[in-house]
Amino acid sequence: MAEVVNVAVAFLVIVFIFRWATTPGEQSEADKALGFRPKKATQPMVDTVAAMFPDIPVDNIRYDLLRTGSVETTSNRILERGFLDPPPAGYFTLYPRSTDTSASQIRQSAPAPGTPQPGSSTPKQTLISKFNLETRVNNESISQEDIGGKSTWEDSAEKREASLRERKAKMILAARQRMLQKEAGNSPSPSS
């Protein structure tokens, strides 16, 4: 029995010495700075998470990916908690902040929905033009009671779709009316 214990202890000592001898120097620096052995976190992984969650800082994303090594786990953590923990100060010695990160390039290169891209000749599309309400803009006055209204369940899918389209149109026209009334109330009247 004593021989088995001696063999097990010797085996564990050999494994420990082998791991210690084969660990590269920068890896142990990363272990010390971060407090854990970092997993592989590539720039495409960081870019993927940053594209899904543009409001999360890139350093927080990279730090979490170094801990988890998984885009899915990091994404789930963001969805569950709404944020990621900020990296410790030691993180910035290994991964200095750069103003030219590819995630910020993604944010800058991807235009916001509804905004024209530079060099394109298409005008900015408004809700009025998107839903073809140009003819109804000046012709209708929508009251607040007509906006939501009670809808009835129609017999066919086509009737339900038409009812939904009409309710959307009324909501858009009512919002436009409120905006114009607010602008008219805020703007000073011309004195000429």
Rank of each mutant, 00 (worst) to 15 (best):
A2P: 02
A2S: 06
E3S: 05
V4D: 06
V5F: 10
N6P: 02
V7E: 07
V9T: 03
F11R: 04
L12W: 01
F16P: 00
F18R: 10
R19E: 11
R19Y: 15
W20P: 00
W20Y: 14
P24G: 01
G25V: 08
E26A: 03
E26R: 11
Q27G: 02
Q27N: 04
S28M: 10
S28R: 12
A30R: 02
D31Q: 07
D31M: 14
K32Y: 11
A33D: 07
A33M: 14
L34E: 10
L34R: 02
G35Q: 10
F36G: 01
F36W: 00
R37N: 09
P38N: 00
P38T: 00
P38K: 00
A41N: 06
T42K: 13
Q43K: 08
P44I: 05
M45D: 09
V46G: 05
D47T: 02
V49C: 02
A51N: 05
A51Y: 07
M52S: 07
M52F: 13
F53C: 06
I56L: 11
V58H: 05
V58A: 13
V58C: 03
D59N: 06
N60A: 12
L65F: 10
L66K: 10
R67Q: 15
T68P: 00
S70V: 05
V71S: 01
T74C: 15
T74V: 09
N76D: 11
I78G: 11
E80L: 12
E80V: 04
L84F: 04
L84K: 04
D85C: 02
P87Y: 05
P87I: 04
Y91T: 04
Y91H: 04
T93V: 11
T93G: 05
Y95W: 14
R97H: 09
S98T: 03
T99E: 12
S102L: 06
S102Q: 14
Q108T: 03
Q108M: 07
S109A: 09
A110P: 01
A110H: 11
P111K: 10
P113E: 13
P113F: 15
Q117A: 07
Q117P: 00
S120N: 08
S121D: 09
T122P: 00
T122I: 11
P123C: 05
P123Q: 14
Q125V: 08
T126R: 01
T126W: 01
T126M: 03
L127W: 14
I128A: 01
S129A: 10
S129V: 09
K130G: 01
L133S: 08
L133C: 05
E134N: 05
V137G: 06
V137C: 06
N139M: 12
S141H: 12
I142F: 14
I142V: 14
Q144W: 13
E145W: 09
D146Q: 15
I147T: 15
K150N: 09
E154T: 07
E154M: 13
D155P: 02
D155L: 13
S156H: 10
S156M: 07
S156L: 04
A157R: 07
A157W: 15
R160T: 08
R160I: 02
A162W: 03
E166R: 10
M171F: 09
R176L: 14
Q177T: 08
R178Y: 09
M179L: 15
L180F: 05
L180V: 06
Q181T: 04
K182V: 05
E183L: 13
A184P: 03
G185F: 09
S187Q: 13
P188G: 04
P188L: 13
S191W: 09
